[in-house]
Simulated assay, not measured.
Amino acid sequence: MSAPDSGVDPGLPVMTWERFRQLVEVLGGEAGIETCQGFEDACRRLAGILSREPVGQIIGFGERLAEALYRLDQAAFGTLPVLGTEAAVGAPFPQSDDGFLYSRAGVVAAGRQAYEGVFDRPERFAPYTALRCEELLYVHEEVFEQVTGTEWDRLTRYDYETCSNADGWPDLRK
Rank of each mutant, 00 (worst) to 15 (best):
V108P: 07
D41S: 07
A88R: 13
A76W: 11
Y158A: 02
I58V: 15
C163Q: 09
E18R: 06
R64W: 10
V26N: 03
D73W: 03
T148E: 02
S2D: 13
Q74T: 09
L27A: 08
A126N: 13
E145K: 12
P170G: 08
T79F: 07
G111S: 01
P94E: 00
D171M: 00
D171F: 01
T16R: 02
T85Q: 13
Y128W: 00
A105S: 14
P13E: 14
E134M: 00
L27S: 05
P10R: 05
P10G: 01
S96L: 11
E123D: 07
A75S: 15
F61C: 01
W169D: 15
P170Q: 12
E53Y: 07
E34H: 03
A110S: 09
P54L: 06
R44L: 01
E123S: 00
W169T: 15
G78L: 05
D98F: 11
T148Q: 07
D9Y: 06
F93Q: 05
V89M: 10
G56E: 15
W169V: 14
L83Y: 06
A75R: 08
E18N: 04
F119S: 09
G11P: 05
G28A: 05
E161Q: 05
E30R: 10
D159M: 14
R157G: 05
V139W: 12
G111F: 05
V108G: 13
M15E: 04
S51D: 11
C133Q: 03
A110W: 00
V82L: 10
P4W: 12
G99N: 04
C36E: 15
G28H: 14
E40V: 12
G149E: 02
D167P: 01
G38P: 04
F77H: 07
A68G: 10
G106S: 02
P92A: 03
W17S: 07
M1T: 13
A88H: 12
E134G: 00
L65T: 14
Y102P: 03
D167H: 07
G11R: 02
R45W: 00
I49G: 04
Y138P: 00
G60S: 07
D5S: 10
L155Y: 10
E123I: 09
S96N: 13
V82F: 10
A126C: 12
P10C: 04
A87N: 11
E151L: 13
R44C: 04
A3Y: 14
G90A: 14
R124M: 15
T156G: 01
F125C: 12
S51H: 06
L155M: 11
R154V: 02
